[in-house]
């Protein structure tokens, strides 16, 4: 048992936690845009954390670099995808949910 293992456990659990909150957000938030907040952000970080956890567990090698590449990819692709969907929603005329007092 070296140091990396607890660290990787930590990261994995953190990833799981953020996944959970993202999913809960996905289920609970009132409208599409708000849900996008949950998935777009929560999942990015959760994926990053999990990837770090796994690569720590595997030890440093070329594999870690590959995992890092997935992370980089996610880092760019996830917000872009989120943006693309939200933009489509906006252009398709989905009205963002507003609080009642603001609607007037």
């Amino acid at each position: 048992m070296n140091l990396t293992t607890p660290l990787s456990i930590l990261f994995m659990v953190g990833g799981l936690f953020f996944f959970t909150t993202a999913t809960i957000g996905l289920l609970r938030f009132p409208d599409f845009f708000a849900r996008l907040h949950a998935t777009g952000k929560g999942d990015t970080l959760a994926v990053l954390l999990s990837l770090i956890g796994i690569s720590l567990y595997e030890g440093f090698s070329l594999t870690s670099l590959k995992i890092a590449f997935i992370a980089v990819f996610m880092f760019w692709a996830q917000p872009t995808a989120t943006h693309a969907i939200s933009r489509a929603g906006l252009r398709r005329g989905i009205k963002p949910w507003m609080k009642k007092e603001n609607k007037i």
Binding site: G15, F19, L26, F32, S50, I70, Q78, I85, A88
Partner: peptide
């Protein structure tokens, strides 16, 4: 449709990690 797309991409992220876990 929009909610579905968002949810599918969320599922995609989770399965991504699951794949790696299987690798482990």
């Amino acid at each position: 449709i929009f909610n579905r797309v968002a949810a599918v991409s969320a599922i995609g992220n989770k399965t991504l990690i699951m794949l790696l876990i299987m690798g482990v």
